[in-house]
C-alpha cells in the first residue's frame, strides 16, 4: 500500500511468478530461480525483489534477500497449515489461513495450532463456505502499525 516506489511491468510479472511458484512448489522461488525464469542477472532479480518488498508486495529477509512472505503465504512453518489441491501451504496468520482459499478460489482444509495450548483446531472452506467452529481472531495492532514489524503482526 505504499505508493512511493514505482514498479515496472516486469516487476509485476515477477510478483505473479513468485506467487504461482510459491503455490505450485510449497515454497517461494530463490533469486536464482527467478533470475533464470526472466533471463535476468541475479543482481537484477534481487533489485526487483527489493522494489516489491518496498511496495509491501513481498517481504524479504533483510540479510539474504530470500522471500519470507508473499501474503497470505509464509515461507516458514507457522501455526496455520492449509491443505489445498494436494499441497500444503503455510499461512502467516489466522486471517491469511482464509486468504489462501480466497486467493485460489479453492476448497481447503486448515489445521491451526492454539497459541495457548498447542491444541489442533480444524476448519475448512468448501464451495466458498466456511466450515468450522465459532472461534475468534485477535487483531492486536491497529492497521496503521501492521507494517512496523510484520513478523510480530
Amino acid at each position: 500500500m505504499t505508493e512511493a516506489i514505482e514498479l515496472t511491468d516486469q516487476d509485476w510479472r515477477i510478483r505473479l511468478f513468485i506467487y504461482q511458484f510459491f503455490v505450485d512448489n510449497e515454497r517461494p522461488p530463490s533469486i536464482q530461480e527467478t533470475a533464470g525464469q526472466f533471463s535476468l542477472s541475479e543482481n537484477s532479480a534481487l533489485e526487483a525483489y527489493r522494489r516489491l518488498n518496498q511496495r509491501h508486495q513481498i517481504f524479504l529477509a533483510p540479510e539474504t534477500g530470500q522471500i519470507l512472505m508473499a501474503h497470505p503465504l509464509s515461507a516458514l512453518p507457522t501455526l496455520y497449515r492449509v491443505a489445498v489441491n494436494g499441497r500444503n501451504l503455510w499461512a502467516n496468520c489466522a486471517w491469511d489461513s482464509l486468504g489462501i482459499p480466497a486467493m485460489l478460489d479453492a476448497d481447503v482444509e486448515i489445521e491451526a495450532r492454539h497459541p495457548l495450548s498447542d491444541e489442533v483446531i480444524h476448519y475448512a472452506v468448501k464451495n466458498r463456505e466456511l466450515v468450522g467452529p465459532p472461534h475468534r481472531v485477535h487483531f492486536a495492532l491497529p492497521a496503521r502499525r501492521w507494517y512496523d514489524d510484520l513478523v510480530h503482526t
Partner: peptide
C-alpha cells in the same frame, strides 16, 4: 492475527 476459542482466552 491468532485464533482463539473465546474472548476470555
Amino acid at each position: 492475527m491468532l485464533l482463539f476459542r473465546s474472548e476470555e482466552e
